[in-house]
Design a protein around this nucleic acid. Structure first.
Lengths: 117, 117
DNA sequence: ACGTTGATCAACGAAAGTGTTGAATATGTA
DNA sequence: TACATATTCAACACTTTCGTTGATCAACGT
């Protein structure tokens, strides 16, 4: 009954947590292991590990294997999807309502399923 | 312990639901009342009303008062914040890592609080 | 005043999210 | 082998979210 399973919902849900966004911010500066990532936080290592699992499930990070370490790496594809989703709304604050009309026509033709996207 | 309260988390959490995104998409085409907004969905009017409350609390919509109707209107400020948050990562897929370096320097100077943003 | 329409509030239950502790797994080192 | 390090798994508790039903509030029309 509950909890959306579509990719965009999964992504946004993963991003809706300050700890996870901080982890991504750290990863934007380079790869890191779980322990390195956990260091700045007051929560347990296990909790951080689970946050990373959420990010991985959402496709926001990927992980390698080097001995007992599992270095995490930022993946941008899902963030690009968020960026794409925003495009529709960006036109509002950019004031180009002509583009907006064109955009609306286009998506209702190709259809992007308004109730899922 | 639970549930982040910072504005960006609230916004992303509100967006992490396909029903609520569909409501925003509908509102991007113009203002609408609760009944009009609820019409395409299989859930109860009360459920839609609560989704709208979530969107309003997040600042993603505002509401007027016209007799017994409460017309909803899209507000873009919070979406712009999401857009701003994305900027840091956009540099990755745009391949301009020089800009990235400059960006990182700038934010660690002015500080944007990595653990909250 | 009365009934209708638009919308919200309140109480409930099921499911999911987040943190903790303690155990388990896997790899590297002495 | 034994031990330390890195990470994950499992069980538990508490909170939050989402949908439902039933009641309530507010403004309209007759």
């Amino acid at each position: 009954m509950y909890s959306a399973t579509d990719p965009l919902s999964t992504t946004l849900s993963a991003l809706a947590d300050p700890t996870r966004r901080a982890l991504l911010a750290r990863l934007s500066e380079g790869e890191a292991t779980v322990n390195q990532l956990a260091e700045p936080f007051d929560i347990t290592l296990q909790a951080v590990s689970r946050h990373l699992k959420v990010l991985e499930t959402a496709g926001l990070i990927s992980r390698g294997r080097e001995a007992q370490w599992r270095p995490c790496k930022l993946e941008t594809a899902r963030l690009q999807e968020v960026d794409g989703w925003l495009a529709r709304y960006r036109m509002f604050w950019e004031g180009s309502f002509d583009k907006m009309g064109a955009y609306l026509e286009e998506i209702t033709k190709g259809d992007q399923n308004g109730s899922k996207n």
